[in-house]
Design a protein around this nucleic acid. Sequence first.
DNA 1: TGGCTATGAATGAACG
DNA 2: CGTTCATTCATAGCCA
Lengths: 200, 200
Amino acid sequence: MPQTPSTRWCPTPEQLMILEEMYRSGVRTPNAAQIQQITAHLSYYGKIEGKNVFYWFQNHKARERQKLRRRLSRHQQLLHYQLHQSEDAPPPPSPILQRHMPPHLLHQVFFFFSCLQEATTQGMDLVGKLETVGTEEEEEEPMTSAMGFEQEWMTTMDASSRVPPCCRPLKTLDLFPVKSTGLKDECSSSKSSSCSTSTN
Amino acid sequence: MPQTPSTRWCPTPEQLMILEEMYRSGVRTPNAAQIQQITAHLSYYGKIEGKNVFYWFQNHKARERQKLRRRLSRHQQLLHYQLHQSEDAPPPPSPILQRHMPPHLLHQVFFFFSCLQEATTQGMDLVGKLETVGTEEEEEEPMTSAMGFEQEWMTTMDASSRVPPCCRPLKTLDLFPVKSTGLKDECSSSKSSSCSTSTN
DNA sequence: TGGCTATGAATGAACG
DNA sequence: CGTTCATTCATAGCCA
């Protein structure tokens, strides 16, 4: 039994508190000396190594950025949608498919097609761009506080409530100029309601 | 705080079906844009956020790998008994690949999609490294290089700052479970002794 | 009812 | 740095 129960560092509440405090105080990329210092200090509350501190700051910073990034891109995407919301007659990808197919399947097929198109045109001219859709985007609450820090490329899309039967699917290639700004795209964070996942 | 009060995302059958379909099609690590699109699409079937999609793929991928790892290690252990030479024939490529097939129409769509995926290298990192994982549970390699990257203060605090011995598996290897990862054999379900990450 | 499993979620660790 | 992987936590269904 190679014990190695859990080589992973597990911050104690005190350590975490201190780290967060420092982060809030402005520490984001501590130097080696600072890291040593921090580590020495935190070691009082439990086992800790320099790399733990290093990684902690790295992750914390990265995840906070992700949040920001995703927020920005989400906004931009929404704006983009709005700017292009004039077309409401998307060309059916495959009229034949619509013949005998349940709505949800049709939707799915559309989706796949859109994926196809996106992938095929990835990194190329974004001719199609997304049109259609672009309805009012409700103001989803930021409420990121519920999660603390984690990756959030999470978007709060819950259009399930009043989704127009046939709107979403067709957007051809909805890539947005996110990379150009140096910021990737992420999503927002929020909690969903529970339901029954079974049926599998 | 962020301890998932009681509201976890619960994929609807349709959402799950689509996700699995995509996974089967080769989608493993969708980028932000793809996640956005997937989320937008799935939101048609119910409430969903980008993070749900992200986590789903992450978990799905990780668990598939985990299972393979487990199986492989088992096999290797058995073989280890027989012979030192661990030249076992890898299991079938992908049993999961051919599961139940949704409606017939989906078939062709799926086909297109998979073709596309393959072409776009979405999940074609064929880096089957096959690193026969040392069967010994004792770590032995110095792996100093693992730390020799950025800061060196990593080793200053604690002498036992050794990173987990086993090297890392390469990539994920999507469609074919031929690559053996680090083979950690996570049989140890001793979840005790760890700190309470519950944050509350 | 208590263990077990499956899975969403979170985060430390590390790669490119 | 951004992204990805591995591990762990937490919890909803199962089953005996």
